[in-house]
């Protein structure tokens, strides 16, 4: 797996999508694979938290019979944090500002996810 390749895809996604402020790709055991996050964020910590959050989300999905978890959305005062699985080997974290249109954003995220999946395979 080439990380620089994924970096390019993430940068292309962040540069080309309105209201997106950063993105990172994280392994399921919480290690950063690639990231374009705002400078103030600690990649390692963020990655570990994302992985923990996704597996917790999956538990919730199972416990509440919601089926497989598609994405996890954190909506805060200042914007969104979205986690989306990228196959078995990675999780995509996307940070977006409050002004983002959710539907459009999801569409763009899905497009990025499919591109990342190809790059990872």
């Amino acid at each position: 797996m080439s990380i620089s390749n994924i970096d390019g895809i993430l940068q292309n996604f962040v540069s080309g999508t309105a209201d997106v402020q950063g993105a990172a790709l994280v392994s399921p055991d919480g290690l950063p694979l690639a990231s374009t996050l705002p400078g103030t964020m600690d990649e390692e910590r963020t990655s570990a938290m994302c992985a923990a959050m996704l597996s917790l989300g999956e538990r919730i999905g199972k416990e509440l019979s919601r089926g497989n978890v598609d994405r996890i959305l954190v909506e805060g005062e200042n914007g969104y944090g979205i986690l989306m699985g990228c196959g078995d080997d990675a999780v995509l974290l996307v940070l977006a500002s409050k002004s983002a249109k959710q539907g459009l954003l999801m569409l763009e995220i899905k497009r990025a996810v499919s591109e990342i999946k190809v790059a990872l395979s």
């Binding site: 940068q11 962040v14 540069s15 080309g16 999508t17 309105a18 402020q21 950063g22 374009t36 705002p38």
Partner: peptide
Amino acid sequence: IPWGLQLKVWEIISVDRLR
């Protein structure tokens, strides 16, 4: 990181202009 990306994240350049 690419300057264009940073300018876009700072909301100094719009996606359209960057494109």
